[in-house]
Nucleic acid binder design. Structure first.
Length: 178
DNA sequence: GGCGTGATTGTTGCC
DNA sequence: GGCAACAATCACGCC
């Protein structure tokens, strides 16, 4: 069954997410984010694209393989989102894989016009991704890194506005029940 | 008509 | 450190 963490984590993630873990005073020209430690202290964590790319190389070895292929997570819970998250809160930027998926989908549909299911495309894309070299992937990581930097700035701005009370209306708006 | 599902990997937040 | 949620996409199914 679903672990108890699932529920609590879920509710937490929808209310806190990156927003609460964000420090608006954080310089946004660098890749930074805050990590909340168990002692509730915020620790600045600097993330460079280099680190991302390094992790990318590791992922080529497919760390994901440790995870059960499919049905690893209850999909029924996955798409819950769209809940009471602030509508003005920036969305999580897509990962490098998702940018590749965009390209791949177009190609795949050209070559296989009869296959339209994202399930099949996702599978094929995942396999292709694993076969790709780091050099092939790096451009997508670059895009993802850029987008994340944008997300950082947008989030900082969002937090600033929220703290200054500019977004109080939206807060009210997004707080329907639950 | 509208919403949830499924399939993928990467990233992040929290315990 | 490990696990779960969420990011995009869209045909299809169900209510």
């Amino acid at each position: 069954m679903a672990k108890k963490a699932t529920k609590s984590r879920k509710s937490r993630s929808s209310s806190t997410t990156a927003a609460s873990a964000y420090n608006p005073s954080t310089p946004s020209n660098e890749f930074c984010c805050l990590e909340r430690k168990p002692d509730r202290k915020m620790v600045l964590r600097v993330k460079s694209s280099e680190k991302m790319k390094r992790s990318a190389q590791q992922s080529v070895v497919s760390e994901r393989e440790k995870r059960p292929k499919s049905k690893s997570r209850p999909k029924s819970k996955q798409k819950k989102k769209k809940t009471k998250i602030d509508a003005k809160m920036p969305k999580k930027p897509p990962t490098a894989f998702f940018y590749f998926l965009e390209d791949f989908r177009k190609e795949f549909q050209e070559q296989n016009p009869d296959i339209k299911s994202m399930r099949d495309i996702g599978k094929a894309c995942g396999e292709k991704w694993k076969l790709m070299t780091y050099e092939e992937k790096v451009k997508y990581y670059d895009i993802a890194t850029e987008k994340r930097a944008e997300f950082d700035r947008a989030m900082a701005e969002y937090i600033r506005r929220k703290e200054s009370g500019e977004d109080q209306e939206t807060e009210d708006d997004s707080e329907f029940d639950e």
